[in-house]
Amino acid sequence: MLELHNVKFIYPTGDGIQHITFRINPGELVFLVGPSGAGKSTVLKSIFLQERPTEGHVIVGEYNSLFVSRQEIPYLRRKLGIVFQDFKLLNDRDVFRNISFVLEVIGTRSKVIKRRVLRALADVGLSHKSRKYPEELSGGEQQRVAIARAIVNEPYILLADEPTGNLDPDTAGEIMDVLMRINMRGTSLLMATHNFALAKAYNGRIIRIEHGQLV
């Protein structure tokens, strides 16, 4: 499903990751834990090929980073759902359209789009706010929209990069509940976090990273 083999990526500044090897099985819950700057985001970026490994390789479903052309990267990303700390919602469109455009990208029929978006909104408990704009929502609600956007395409695996980093503890707890529900339904979840206590509170595998290497 998702495998990283001896992955290395170094930025021009010298920071980066190396010797990263792990595998995530279907339905598994995995926390990638490490302090700020340890390389957690770079690991995630190397999975969705925003940063292409200079050594080693990543396997996502049928795609292997060694053989994926630039034109194929969008198709690889469609197998993944990605949630960011800063939500990355589009402020020029409402909640419904923020989620539906993921399906429009892959040419889904409009009837199917409507059904799947409403389902994803129900999953994150935001059915009543589909016509709101991101700026009209709280941080927690925005992150829930981002999660709905990430799962609407029924991905192999959900990648979450510090999804609770910008939220207060109560709201962070709500977001974790949403993510756990999605994972319980069978979607793999790889969550990067600096919060070791948070990771320990859930029944998942913990992978620790420091100075760009797994420990």
Partner: peptide, 16 residues
């Protein structure tokens, strides 16, 4: 640019 970057992340092709 933000829209373009986000579209890329969710798997939109350049042509799209």
């Amino acid at each position: 640019q933000q829209i373009i970057a986000t579209m890329k992340l969710v798997g939109a092709t350049d042509a799209f």
